[in-house]
């Protein structure tokens, strides 16, 4: 399988200034030496809690933020080296689906205008008729039928589920190779999520798209993804086939995450023993220790002395934890 995205030691730091005259600075690593590979025609799931850096990685892969270190290859070419013209071509080949169906569409722009924009920018050779045709076709692909009815609507005249479909239509209309879907269903009602997830799967199956699916919800992620990476404080702590990650989680953090997922099974009542140590907020300050050491129930001295290597423990199953050295 060919890789479409390859990140190499990607690091992004955010500096916050505080105190009198903003002289105290503290640095947080949102991405800390991230190495992931996303294959062609694959949905790559990225899970993590809020603040784990998963959205930052999505933005980095689309070159929407600058990095402190590392490079990201798109079909073997570092996107951070692209010049203006090449960047324009890269924009044509990549797209994003957003979390919030209410904020991702301009309220005063019609659906037709929103969805047709990428075509009009990237395919200036198309006639207005061709554009209209393509918009209608795309809206029907995402289940907005009859599409005619939606062309002239404004976002406020549509439901959240319909808006999210418009967002997907806008992302796929210019036929990109790679799409980042950032929490695309987390703001939708449960009964509407399934259809959106199935549309995303069909983008892969029928249109051969590759995708990075970012979510905090493991159940949803494993439903759509071929492989899953687990992120914790800016680091990838585990990566593998999605079924494997769920059935056989190796990293203590992944185990806790999976244990905490609500499952629709009344026979699995939660007992009243509390799990997973203390809750308090930590940030990654780039120290030379395991990012999970402060919370890990299996923590050893060595965890605080160096970073665990990210290595292949079983076939295609990577983990960064000293327990598997």
């Amino acid at each position: 399988m060919n890789s479409i995205i390859e990140t190499n030691q990607v690091t992004k730091e955010f500096v916050t200034k505080r105190g009198f005259l903003k002289r105290t600075t503290s640095t947080t690593r949102a991405l800390d030496q991230v190495n992931v590979t996303i294959n062609e025609n694959e949905i790559f799931g990225l899970i993590g809690e809020s603040g784990s850096g998963k959205t930052t990685l999505g933005l980095a892969i689309l070159r929407l933020i600058d990095l402190n270190q590392g490079k990201i290859n798109f079909f073997g070419e570092n996107i951070y080296d692209l010049k203006k013209r090449q960047l324009f071509n890269f924009r044509e080949k990549t797209q994003m689906i957003f979390q919030d169906p209410y904020s991702s569409l301009n309220p005063v722009v019609t659906i037709y205008k929103s969805v047709s924009t990428p075509l009009k920018v990237f395919h200036k050779e198309m006639s207005e008729e061709q554009v209209v045709d393509k918009v209608i076709q795309t809206l029907e692909t995402v289940g907005l039928t009859p599409a005619d009815q939606f062309l002239n609507k404004f976002p406020s005249q549509m439901s959240g589920g319909q808006r999210q479909r418009v967002g997907i239509a806008r992302a796929v209309i210019s036929d990109p190779d790679f799409i980042v879907a950032d929490e695309p269903v987390s703001m939708l009602d449960v009964s509407l999520r399934a259809d959106i997830l199935n549309i995303l799967i069909n983008l892969k199956l029928k249109l051969n798209k590759s995708m990075m699916f970012i979510s905090h919800d493991i159940t949803v992620t494993q439903y759509v993804s071929d492989r899953i990476a687990v992120m914790h404080l800016g680091q990838i702590v585990e990566m593998g086939e999605s079924g494997e990650i769920i059935k056989n989680p190796l990293h203590p953090y992944t185990k806790t995450l999976i244990d905490s997922i609500p499952v629709p099974d009344p026979n699995k009542k939660w007992n009243t023993d509390e799990i997973g140590g203390q809750i308090s907020e930590y940030t990654n300050e780039g120290k030379n220790e395991c990012s999970y050491a402060n919370k890990c129930p299996f923590v050893k001295d060595v965890c605080r002395e160096r970073r665990p290597d990210f290595k292949e423990v079983e076939k295609n199953h990577f983990v960064a934890c000293v327990l598997y050295d």
Partner: peptide
């Protein structure tokens, strides 16, 4: 900071 601005950026505007 609205997401549709980012969407427009991605649409090549």
């Amino acid at each position: 900071e609205r997401q549709y601005v980012l969407a427009s950026k991605l649409s090549g505007l």
